[in-house]
Write a protein that binds this DNA or RNA. Structure first.
Lengths: 113, 113
DNA sequence: CCAATGATTCGATAAATGTTGAAATATAGA
DNA sequence: TCTATATTTCAACATTTATCGAATCATTGG
């Protein structure tokens, strides 16, 4: 993943409604969620939702597939993981990071919600 | 970590110069880097760098400490990990995610740079 | 105290982003 | 084909964000 795409991905997630949509999609898994359902659950008009979903798709964070009249969105886990790898790349300047407590992922209890 | 802070963190990272600064800090570790050095390495005027560092600090992604005339910035690894935990929270809707290939972090070779 | 150094704040301006109704596009069923 | 449903595109407008020189603040050494 390269810098430009990473910036687009971060920018896509840095917005209340898009972050909410992405998290719903992350939790929904491969099944995905139709655009309309996302708009309703998040509480924005369809045109706004469409705008936001386009940004997520442009950043490569979600995929879309048509299913009858609906367009189903789903999170792209590889993109999400690539994004996180980019942020932690070369963490702490090299090897010592691997086992350093300061650099290890925090425990779920400390970070959830 | 709560939604508002997460959005600020993502927004802070979603900018060319700030992303560059944060990555330098991630690699620098606890030693950190003075504001002026960051400005020089990234190629922006001191006032611009200061503006960007303030955003990173406001999002909790970096810490700052004065050392003589310099102000040293350092990455806050806990905040970074909290951010990533928030994004992957409840991934794939529950337990099956733990060992599902689609949800596992990608291999370094595929994501580096 | 004064001059030099490192950094931030302020203010004006430019550029990008978010919002949403109305119109357009695509699909399904009678 | 006509109508209803699902979604996107367009356009206008409001809001937020980025840039950077000049002025200001903080620290150090002479």
């Amino acid at each position: 993943m390269q810098a430009d795409l990473v910036i687009r991905a971060l920018g896509a997630l840095a917005q209340e409604h898009r972050l909410a949509a992405f998290r719903l999609l992350v939790q929904a898994g491969a099944a995905g969620i139709p655009a309309g359902a996302l708009a309703e659950r998040i509480g924005v008009p369809p045109s706004s939702m469409s705008f936001h979903l386009a940004q997520l798709a442009n950043a490569g964070l979600v995929t879309q597939r048509r299913e009858s009249r609906s367009i189903i969105y789903a999170a792209d886990y590889a993109a999400m993981n690539g994004l996180m790898a980019y942020l932690t790349e070369n963490c702490c300047g090299g090897l010592p990071c691997e086992d350093a407590a300061a650099c290890a992922p925090a425990k779920p209890e400390e970070t959830v919600l």
